[in-house]
Amino acid sequence: MVNLDDLKKEALNLLKDEKVKYIIGYTEGSNGTSAAPAFIKNPEDTDKLVWNPGCFHNLTRFLRDEKKRKAREKHPDERPVGIVVKGCDSRAINVLLQEKYIKRDDVFILGVSCESTGVIDEKKVAKKLKGKKAQKIEWDTNRNLVVTTEDGTTKIPADEVLAERCVECPVHSPVVYDIFFGDKIKRTTDAQFKSVEKIENLSQKEKWDFWKKQFDKCIRCYACRSVCPMCYCDECVVDTISFAVTADTTAEEKAQRIKWIEKSPTPSETFIYHIIRAIHLAGRCIDCGECERVCPLDIPIRFLNKKLEKEAKSLFDYEVGFDPDQLSLVSSFKDEDPEDFIR
């Protein structure tokens, strides 16, 4: 079992010894089921850290802000940032290392094992509670979610409330860390790509109709992009607003900014946005599922990324986030790679 007190103690020591700038972790959220990201600078605040089934956020996304902040500072604090990561999140760190976006010394990783469970899908829990408000949630030792409401406690089997990605998760515990909390349990899954099969089994027309319906909902709020640890480009192909302008950006460069996609959320443009994002995440997405979780319109974005993850694995035997030194999917090849699509 993950001992929260150990986590708090280590965090306290790190801050007291001034080994880290601050710690990105989880704290109690406002609605009982969800935890909330916390940025802890004062040693005494380490007591606010929590570890529970509602810690579903991928905190590595905040490393992007840290990097940008640091770039702006004249005399940046070179100490690392402490960060609490789950198995999936730790793979995101490996991708950021692989892409040289961060250096290993930039982070002090507090790796927490998901052991035999994972994190919850809030929507699944809400359905089970039928409108009641949770005050506290935790896993018991028999893979049950113990929910405390004003009416007392109820037990729900883990498999009924786990986030889908946790059911399909191949790692369960951090693959890169400085300190490890909990038990290193080897767990395998034979259902790593089960969710995509639902879509794969549809006919071409059914697929088209499905995605048309889904993308029609999209309001292009870009929450999926904002929450994604891999969407760290300064300039995104979909919106001219984010184009990087620095002191040496010439008028000619500004004039040559291409508007590949219209801003309006019309079906064709929205399709292109999601397809480009999926392609740009091929071989980079570590399936933290955050894009889908934050979507206000419930678009199953994760299917797209999961499908590409499956393609990468089945075609090229490529899995991302385990080795920061491996070449990226698109910049590497093996002699035995299939090439029957070249005609």
């Binding site: 892409e99 480009c233 300064d234 910049s331």
Partner: peptide, 24 residues
Amino acid sequence: PNLCTGCGMCVDVCPYDALSLKNG
């Protein structure tokens, strides 16, 4: 350079070894 994040994918993919990373 303004847009380059120094991920090095182009360096790996270049068939002529023409690219390298310098100061990120």
